[in-house]
Design a protein around this nucleic acid. Structure first.
Length: 495
RNA sequence: GCGGCCGUGGUCUAGCCAGGUAGGACGCGGGGGCCCCGGCCCUGAGAUCGCGGGUUCGAAUCCCGCCGGCCGCACCA
């Protein structure tokens, strides 16, 4: 497997990929086979541990904080689901092939490049074909004629059962939430507005996956769908708590984000409702808790030409890295697109009672890319001071909580250290290590972001006290062994 | 998908142009040393050189195809 960047991408990207491969954060999937397709990645032990902790923070700061309901749905969904959602018709690119050399083109883009005509999203294939013929658009490489007009759908189709009935791997996790909405609503005794959350895999047949975890064909999403009565999006008392909170909004046409309180953003009509303002605040606060500096976070408003086909209002939460601003969370007001579509397609009435009035709920979503977030976190906390690599991860996101180290690898220090290790390992992610000099081991754990080293030395044998060495400042304190579980919990606690 | 560059132990790389036993560094294992921040000593393991075919007595090296990577273009969450 080759991952080294030859040029262009920054040293930070390069160092991070190297660290990921060496230490087991992530690597490309099936790498021992030559035919492994691009865009699939496996998390190693450290990456998997970190992802677990990141999701736990998501549950803490969003799901539990806002009393959301979390579900876990199937990844293969029927054709009807995607007919209703619009993905079968709209999640596509029009393509055509050169009859001579076989090059494949995005027809709409080729026309725009050649003729300066603007091709709207919804133009039919036949119309595009006519424009190609009338304007003499041909293959840019060999001048051959275009043929084989068709749509390339980004969804993976699968055949279910012996009849191989058409079904699809979900291209976004949220369709489960929409098709399950009625049962969840009926069984969980909730009133509008409320949210359903889900963390899991999504699949998209990307044309050119690239840049490691940033664009994959199989990836994790953590999605939140807030269901609300569109007439009452401003009747939302929870928003009172965030009115003075400053969002970093970048409006269409601006090149820099501006800090503006939710109150003012609402007053100026930048945000459609208190409900939307509240959830934008929640998601920005989440990334601040992750530890990303405020100035590297922005909520960028999407223009008409950028929005997904289902969105009526869209903000992207983006984080700045050495590769530029990376989109981590799509915050879309999906209106009644989804529940309306499923209501029509399935024939089930999805309207619910709200204050004695029947309403089809609207949806505001926070659709988070988990793998991308992990990349941004790793890059943000990667420190490259004097040739030494250190991951300054917040303790609650570190893949290993603490390392337990005998000062020298000799008895009785070894036995004592193993005793401490046995005591802690069911409650904490701890590692024991006695190989090499103590300095070497400290560096080894700095490199993978372990916040705390517990060192057993000769004094431990005399009085049951141990040395605690903290990663970031490399300073040490001495505590009694009996205080260890309690203090560890405190040091590893969420902010 | 197009174009440019590239693919050698876990990582980085020498060797490729001028075919002839795959070398080094770091890392890793074992042993020693070590009373606190990777630099010491001894020792060991680990690569059919991305995959497949061809040329050749002989291919990491030359040729072809494929797969993969980075960048640019075009896209996308």
């Amino acid at each position: 497997m080759q991952l080294k960047a030859d040029k262009g991408v920054g040293r930070r990207f390069e160092e991070l990929i190297k660290l990921a491969l060496e230490k087991g954060f992530f690597a490309s999937s099936s790498e021992i086979y030559g035919d492994a397709p691009a865009g699939f990645w496996d998390y190693g032990p450290l990456g998997a541990a970190m992802k677990r902790k990141f999701i736990e923070l998501w549950r803490r700061e969003l799901v539990r904080r806002d009393e959301m309901l979390e579900i876990d749905g199937a990844q293969i969904l029927s054709k009807s689901v995607f007919k209703a959602s619009g993905h079968l018709d709209s999640f596509v690119d029009p393509i055509a092939r050169c009859s001579k050399c076989g090059a494949i083109y995005r027809v709409d883009k080729l026309i725009e490049e050649r003729t300066e005509l603007h091709i709207p999203e919804r133009m039919s294939l036949d119309e595009m074909k006519r424009i190609v013929e009338n304007n003499g658009v041909r293959c840019t490489r060999c001048g051959g004629e275009l043929t084989g007009y068709s749509y390339f759908n980004m969804m993976f189709r699968v055949g279910v059962g012996v009849a191989e009935a058409d079904a699809y791997l979900r291209p976004e996790t949220c369709q489960n939430i929409f098709v399950d909405f009625l049962r969840v609503y009926k069984t969980m005794r909730r009133k509008l507005p409320f949210a359903i959350a889900q963390y899991g895999k999504s699949f998209r047949n990307e044309i050119s996956p690239r840049q490691g975890l940033l664009r994959m064909r199989e990836f994790y999403q953590a999605e939140i769908e807030v269901f609300f009565n569109p007439d009452k999006a401003d009747d939302f008392p929870k928003a009172n708590a965030i009115m003075d909170y400053e969002l970093r909004l970048q409006q269409v046409g601006e090149s820099e984000p501006a800090e503006i309180t939710c109150q003012d953003a609402l007053g100026q009509g930048l945000i459609s409702s208190k409900l939307v303002a509240y959830y934008l605040a929640l998601i920005q606060q989440f990334y601040e808790k992750v530890g990303i500096p405020r100035e590297r976070i922005r909520l960028r408003q999407l223009g008409e030409d950028e929005k997904a086909f289902y969105a009526v209002e869209a903000w992207d939460l983006e984080v700045e890295t050495s590769l530029g601003w990376i989109e981590l969370v799509a915050c879309n007001n999906r209106g009644d697109h989804d529940l309306g579509g499923h209501q029509r397609m399935s024939g089930h009435e999805i309207e619910v009672m709200d204050d004695g009035q029947k309403v089809l709920p609207h949806v505001f979503e926070l659709s988070m890319g988990v793998d991308r977030s992990l990349y941004c976190i790793l890059e943000n906390f990667l420190s490259l001071k004097n040739g030494k690599i250190m991951l300054r991860l917040p303790p609650y996101l570190a893949p290993v909580d603490a390392a337990i180290l005998p000062l020298v690898s000799r008895e009785p220090l070894i036995s004592k250290a193993l005793e401490v290790y046995d005591e802690l390992r069911r409650d904490f992610d701890v590692e024991y290590d006695d190989s090499g000099s103590i300095g070497r081991r400290y560096m080894r754990y700095d490199e993978i972001g372990v916040p705390i080293c517990i060192t057993i030395d000769h004094q431990t044998i005399e009085d049951e006290s141990i040395t605690i060495r903290f990663r970031d400042a490399a300073h040490q304190i001495r505590i009694d062994i009996s205080e260890l579980p309690y203090l560890l919990r405190e040091w590893l606690a969420y902010p």
